[in-house]
Design a protein around this nucleic acid. Structure first.
Lengths: 208, 208
DNA sequence: GTCTATATTAAGATAGAC
DNA sequence: GTCTATCTTAATATAGAC
């Protein structure tokens, strides 16, 4: 046995590492995570891992980018903006690990010199824009309750994020899907007269 | 000069340290913060600081507890639950540092073995309970939009938290006070007929 | 009450063997 | 491609001097 190690194509290895890294970052946050812990999970040493990624920062950014790509390919609910969000929240309620990673890392990212600060700023900006577009198609320039489409978008994302945090801390007390659904109902009922515009479902790629 | 150091009553010292610690925790998260950095801010060494607190965990918990006490004494907006929340959000929009500390640390607290996990779980539970009580007084058993009082409470807290995150990342793009105000308007407009019950303002002590 | 000194542990990163 | 070995830095914590 000249080559006792596990035979893996480089791309498989990288994917493995990225999955393991997401777990560790979710469990301990960016600063609390160690490369050695990630390496352990895939049966490598820290130095073996560093063959695939130049450093911790780059690993984090790649984890986040890849996750968005994969998720938006694997799960894109159909319907208008509000319906999509509702389905997404219900979907996320079955994936506490994934929810935790984005909840932890997005808040982490507001700290000083955090490597994912730009990533999350841009991601939220894009999400709001796409969602506002969708709201415009659905409700026109005046969505329910005197909100602008941009405000409604920020609000929807805020509700989703805020509920995730409470749900992670206390899953028995907070039913995030139920509350989000009720909130969606509130939005609809406040709507003057929603003209179901011909919608082309947009992938906003929002999974966290 | 037999005693060259700064003369401070122990309670002042402790207060100083707690303030400095909150800053450092907000800037770097719990795991990224170092006792030495906190000590530096008040002109002590790490070991000098440890004379006042047994360790990092205890320091964090004390920081959070004290902050809630001080804030609820210093700022308690009047009015019903919804009005109080609106005023609180407007108030918080002038205190990015404080908002950052609670945003960062609350999300941090969902990670494995985090010393503040219980603190935040209990804090959110209390906040929801108090807020639900206030909503009951204001709207009776059926608040706007088919929500239960408990759901409405979770929703309000979620909106506040979620907007804080987006605002911290992108203060130029997200006007959290404006969006929260619009959201409050949405809730009110969805209300069947809000009977202004005789309210005794309740301090829910929610500052983050 | 605060310091110096130090023990211990662990992190990220680099160099080079195989 | 992955390892061993090592450098460097930094963390919490303890012991004990002043």
């Amino acid at each position: 046995m000249t080559h006792p190690r596990r035979r893996l194509r480089p791309e498989q290895r990288r994917a493995e590492i990225l999955d393991a890294a997401l777990e560790v970052f979710a469990e301990r946050g960016y600063r609390g995570a160690s490369l050695a812990a990630v390496a352990d999970k895939v049966g490598l040493t820290q130095q073996g891992l560093l063959h695939y990624f130049p450093g911790k920062d780059a690993l984090l950014i790649e984890v986040l980018r890849r996750r968005d790509e994969v998720d938006s390919g694997a799960y894109t609910p159909s319907g208008n903006g509000l319906e999509m969000m509702e389905k997404l929240v219900t979907h996320n309620a079955t994936l506490p690990g994934l929810v935790q990673s984005f909840t932890v890392l997005s808040a982490d990212s507001v700290t000083d010199n955090h490597p994912a600060k730009e990533f999350f700023t841009e991601r939220y900006r894009r999400t709001r824009e796409t969602l506002a577009e969708s709201i415009r198609r659905e409700f026109g320039e005046e969505p329910p309750g005197g909100l602008t489409p941009e405000q409604a978008a920020a609000l929807l994302v805020a509700v989703m994020d805020g509920l995730q945090l409470q749900w992670l801390l206390d899953p028995g007390e907070v039913d995030m899907a139920a509350v989000f659904h009720a909130f969606a109902g509130l939005l609809r009922s406040a709507s003057p007269a929603a003209p179901p515009a011909p919608s082309s479902p947009t992938d906003h790629g929002y999974a966290g």
